[in-house]
Structures are given as structure tokens and as C-alpha cells.
């Protein structure tokens, strides 16, 4: 059966895709003191890619992103763990957080904490996980290529 694509859904998803990604980034950076954070942001980003998949199937998904999902997973884990290790190397406890603030002239003062880097890691892990799920479980017609016949 050839998949039929809905034009309306396709267009809507194309319009929404980047907005959703921006929203996910907003949630990621807002996360420390406000609702949001790496997990929520990652989920929203996954939803963006999930919509791509719903509209155009796995081919659309693979066209919209060229980095393998496993790389997202790995880099995300690396980010999260290294955040912990940095505080260890500077003589503090594992995962101890620090708060930085920088004065960016026109943009005003930006305050952030090392937790942000951990959150970025979580974001990437969630996103990688979701992409991997879509890739592995959502093959073209419900079958995956290395499937064993019963």
C-alpha cells in the first residue's frame, strides 16, 4: 500500500516545525527557575520530529535530520556527566552546581547556572531517544528491515 499524504497536515507541520523547536529551546533555557527544563524541552522537540513523522513517514523524518539519533544520545549523556565531572575537577562535590552571571551590555545581565549544561544533556538524550523510537519502531509499513520472518 502506498502511503497517502495529506496536504493540509503536511503544510501545517512544515509551518509548525520550527516554531516547536524554538519553543523547546525556550523551555530548555527557562527551565532553572520557571516551568520547563531539559526533559520538557526535549519532549517538545521530539514532538516536532514526531509530527514530521506523522505527516510524511520515516522518509520525511530522515530528510529533516541527518545526524544519527545515537549521536544525540551519546553527546547528551556526555554533556550531563561531564557537567558533574567539571565540579569534581574544580575541587567540589560531584554534580555541585554553580551560578554564573554575565553582563551582556544591551541585552542586560544574563544569569545562568551549571545546571543548564546538565539540562542540555537531558534535552539531547530525550530527543535522541524519541528519534530512535521513531526510527526503529516506525518503519515504512510497520516492518523493520532486519525482521525475522515467523
Amino acid at each position: 500500500m502506498t502511503p497517502r499524504r495529506s496536504v493540509i497536515l503536511d503544510l501545517c507541520v512544515q509551518a509548525e516545525f520550527h516554531t516547536l523547536l524554538l519553543l523547546s529551546l525556550y523551555l530548555l533555557f527557562a527551565g532553572h527557575n520557571q516551568p520547563g527544563g531539559g526533559f520538557a524541552g526535549g519532549l517538545v522537540a521530539s514532538c516536532a520530529f514526531g509530527l514530521r513523522y506523522v505527516a510524511g513517514g520515516s522518509s520525511a523524518l530522515s530528510r529533516s535530520i541527518s545526524i544519527p539519533a545515537t549521536t544525540f544520545l551519546g553527546v547528551g549523556m556526555l554533556f550531563a556527566i561531564l557537567t558533574g565531572c567539571v565540579s569534581l575537577l574544580t575541587g567540589h562535590e560531584f554534580l555541585e552546581s554553580a551560578i554564573f552571571s554575565a553582563d551582556l551590555m544591551v541585552l542586560g545581565t544574563v544569569k545562568t547556572s551549571s545546571v543548564l549544561f546538565f539540562d542540555i544533556g537531558v534535552y539531547l538524550v530525550v530527543l535522541g531517544m524519541a528519534l530512535l523510537l521513531l526510527e526503529q519502531l516506525g518503519g515504512a509499513d510497520g516492518t523493520d528491515p532486519d525482521e525475522v520472518q515467523p
Partner: peptide, 15 residues
């Protein structure tokens, strides 16, 4: 979700 994947696999293998 992993369990669902396994259940799906089981269904593919055994119908």
C-alpha cells in the same frame, strides 16, 4: 515503551 517494543517483536515472530 521497551516492553511494548518487545511485545511487538513477539507478535511479529509468533502472530
Amino acid at each position: 515503551s521497551f516492553l511494548l517494543a518487545i511485545a511487538y517483536r513477539s507478535w511479529v515472530l509468533t502472530q
